[in-house]
Design a protein around this nucleic acid. Structure first.
Lengths: 151, 151
DNA sequence: CTCTTACCTTTCTCAGTGCGCAAGTTTTCC
DNA sequence: GGAAAACTTGCGCACTGAGAAAGGTAAGAG
């Protein structure tokens, strides 16, 4: 029981860390939803907005606005879907790829500096544990939602 | 290099999870900065606003507003500091303690359900790894800030 | 002792980001 | 034709920071 409370506090600290990281990055490039850009890039070709919404658990309207911002900055292209006139296919532009590489570089430097005392195994272990954690949390929420829908 | 990118993606997923958790909780109690309440409770007696600002890396005005909200809800009391008339000492009220227990209960249930497949050792290992991670990140940012101040 | 300066808040306004909900538009599918 | 889907847009809320003003106090100079 107490272990869970401790975990909660750690998660809160982590939230603070991520806010710090975000802010120090945002100083250089404001108003660009970089996370979403990475998600688009991770998805194979033919990325629809609804997939992004499902993947990120965000509202479609949020996705729409974020994509619009990326398009405005020339990082993403909106192409008409030949099979579905309602939908758009999103594609990362060359400029978007450059921005993505910049972000990866920057984040790599930040983490390298912060985790200089970590072995590769420790980093990998944390990554795996986080993946399992997020997966289990999401699964728990999904089943919970299903229960609510059922009743 | 690639390991760091993977870590970044995991952190982003974690952000999504925390957003989901927050939202499902916020449905019940909107507008109450529960995290700050826990921070106040964690600090021993005689908690000053500036300590909270330093601890959370938030702007003093943000802290002041959050504390004001907690005071308005009767969860925190603002008492004059006997040693420093300028400052206020923040104390969690009985009602605040009840709210805190509610939150701990609720979070405990959520984590119990989500992490039912985890052993106590695995939970502890993740908690320790997260603590180290956040600590190193913060230390990195602190030293970086010092360097910027120095030049 | 007094005065000046520095400090600890608190409060206000303005701004910016991120997000959800509801309503509307266009297109698809039965 | 009508239900459903894929957005898009408008509105509002929560969170945060910057800056300024105000009230009160602490601490050191003289």
């Amino acid at each position: 029981m107490d272990a869970k409370r401790e975990l909660g506090l750690r998660l809160q600290d982590l939230l603070k860390c991520m806010r710090l990281i975000k802010q120090s990055r945002a100083m250089e490039r404001p108003g660009i939803p970089a996370g979403l850009l990475a998600q688009i890039d991770d998805l194979p070709a033919g990325c629809h907005a609804r997939e992004l919404a499902a993947r990120t658990s965000l509202d479609p309207s949020t996705i729409s606005r974020a994509v619009a911002a990326l398009v405005a900055h020339g990082l993403v292209e909106r192409l008409p879907d030949p099979h579905d006139g309602r939908a758009s296919v999103l594609a990362v532009t060359p400029a978007g790829r450059v921005a993505l590489a910049d972000i990866a570089d920057w984040l790599g430097r930040v983490l390298d500096r912060a985790l200089s005392g970590w072995s590769a195994e420790e980093v990998a272990a944390l990554t795996v544990a986080l993946a399992r954690f997020t997966h289990d949390i999401e699964a728990s929420f999904a089943s919970h939602d299903n229960l609510e829908v059922a009743r």
